[in-house]
């Protein structure tokens, strides 16, 4: 029974890891490529680590939960690296299939900085 559960977890994990890297090859532009590794691989490695935790808990006396640490760490850090990479990509102005939002955010920033400076001059006066 446990054997089947472990096999299932290991296979699912390996397949998701594979699909995540496949996305890296198949997708067309940088921003869509970001999606594959951040999502598919986190669950893939998560499944493998849970399988490892179950395997070692079953094999030796006592629980073996330290794999959970890597899982949690990956779940927290993968989005952060994705965010940084997206930011770097936007900063370098990489070509994108979607409309790049050059105009969308800076405009609003200008407005707020403008109102801020307005307020500041009002205070100065």
């Amino acid at each position: 029974m446990l054997d089947y559960l472990l096999s299932f977890l290991i296979l699912t994990g390996a397949i998701f890891t594979f699909v995540g890297s496949l996305g890296l090859v198949r997708l067309k532009d940088f921003y869509t490529r970001l999606h594959g590794p951040t999502k598919a691989t986190t669950l893939g490695v998560g499944c493998l680590l849970i399988a490892s935790a179950i395997y070692f808990s079953n094999r030796e006396a006592g629980m073996s939960l330290h794999e959970v640490l890597i899982t949690l760490f990956l779940f927290i850090t993968a989005p952060v690296s994705a965010h940084m990479l997206a930011k770097a990509g936007l900063h370098l102005g990489l070509p994108s299939l979607a409309k790049t939002p050059e105009e969308k955010i800076p405009e609003k920033d200008n407005e707020t900085t403008k109102t801020l400076t307005d307020k500041k001059t009002a205070v100065d006066q």
Partner: peptide, 21 residues
């Protein structure tokens, strides 16, 4: 970032808007 089909890409400097891909 962890949920279906979206990645957060950039936070505007005034922290009022989040850019999502």
């Amino acid at each position: 970032t962890l949920t279906p089909g979206t990645v957060s890409a950039q936070l505007s400097p005034d922290r009022k808007h989040l850019l999502i891909h």
